[in-house]
């Protein structure tokens, strides 16, 4: 009974535009479909913390994990599209997962708000590896097919990065070792189980600093200001790039004024010097892009995955 009463009140509130000026009236639930402390989670917490200056009610992070991030996505899908439930995701997961698992929904079933942060992906080898740059790795693979052990997460971002490299260099025949999770891939390099891998730069940096891993290149489209003296793959002559961008979504048909308030608040937060500093300390780039640009990015990324997946027979 209480819930029904609340629903009626809510309907009344939503129906009267004047009241929407004071949106949000209660804390906003931000669903991060990954474990606390993971890279998506950290960026969400930092932004969620700093956005307090621009919104009357706080952001509350919920980690709803499982099913390659689809569990969290489903939660937002089922929730009321009133702007109180947001999804914090990036195309490498959401766009790909729906394709691979044949889910009955995709990222288009949400309303995109904006892009918030981007981070870098690094290509690494162990410290005692004979390879000094990316070119050397690929030359070795070409000369010795099936010998170099490349650890990646099947159907994951690291896999698609590898496929993008294949596409640019012609068929690459490395021994693929399935290892999911940035930390696990780092461990596999450290323990000598594999020879080369791609992980997010944030996860790799402590080990690069300590000298346990060697950073060969960044898999970005342009140099990162967090590691300005690291070349990108493109510079080394390999036309493969992946830009790791995180975006915010709400349920479909959320009222426009609610969306506008959210986008505005997020934009202001990302321009705030404190936020920028906090994000940079965790190896994130504040990267605000509006709704149209976000949708374009996702479409491009999805098309790229689809091409790679079909070409390399990950999808039929």
């Amino acid at each position: 009974m209480l819930k029904r009463l609340f629903t009626v009140l809510l309907a009344v509130f939503l129906a009267v535009p004047a009241f929407a000026e004071t949106w949000p009236e209660k804390p906003v639930q931000v669903v991060v479909p990954w474990n606390p402390g993971g890279s998506s989670d950290i960026s969400a917490r930092i932004v969620g913390d700093k956005i307090r200056k621009f919104l009357p009610k706080p952001f509350v992070i919920s980690n709803i994990t499982g099913a390659l991030g689809l569990n969290g996505a489903r939660q937002v899908l089922k929730a009321r599209p009133d702007g109180y439930t947001l999804l914090w995701e990036h195309p490498g997961n959401l766009a790909v997962a729906s394709m691979v698992t044949r889910a009955n929904f995709s990222w288009r079933d949400f309303d995109a708000l904006c892009t918030v942060v981007s981070s870098d992906m690094a290509m690494l080898v162990p410290k005692n590896s004979p390879f000094k740059d990316a070119r050397a790795v690929f030359d070795y693979i070409k000369k010795n097919p099936g010998k170099l052990r490349w650890s990646l997460s099947l159907n994951g971002v690291s896999h698609f990065a590898y496929l993008a490299m294949c596409k640019s260099l012609g068929q690459l025949d490395a021994k693929l070792i399935p290892t999911s999770g940035d930390k696990d891939r780092v461990v596999s390099l450290l323990s000598g189980t594999s020879d080369v891998t791609c992980v997010s730069y944030a996860a790799a940096r402590p080990y690069v600093e300590s000298g346990d891993l060697r950073l060969l290149a960044l898999v970005n489209s342009k140099r990162s200001d967090l590691a300005p003296d690291v070349p990108t793959l493109k510079e080394q002559g390999i036309d493969a790039a992946y830009d790791y961008r995180c975006s915010v979504f709400t349920g479909k048909n959320t009222p426009d004024n609610v969306k506008a308030i959210l986008i505005d608040a997020l934009k202001k937060t990302l321009e705030d010097p404190e936020t920028i500093e906090a994000l940079k300390a965790q190896m994130f780039h504040p990267d605000f892009q509006d709704t149209a640009a976000t949708i374009r990015n996702w479409e491009q990324d999805e098309a790229l995955y689809r091409t790679l997946a079909t070409e390399y027979k990950l999808l039929k």
Partner: peptide
């Protein structure tokens, strides 16, 4: 169960 690429 869709086999996709028969990996490992």
């Amino acid at each position: 169960i869709d086999q996709g690429i028969n990996f490992a």
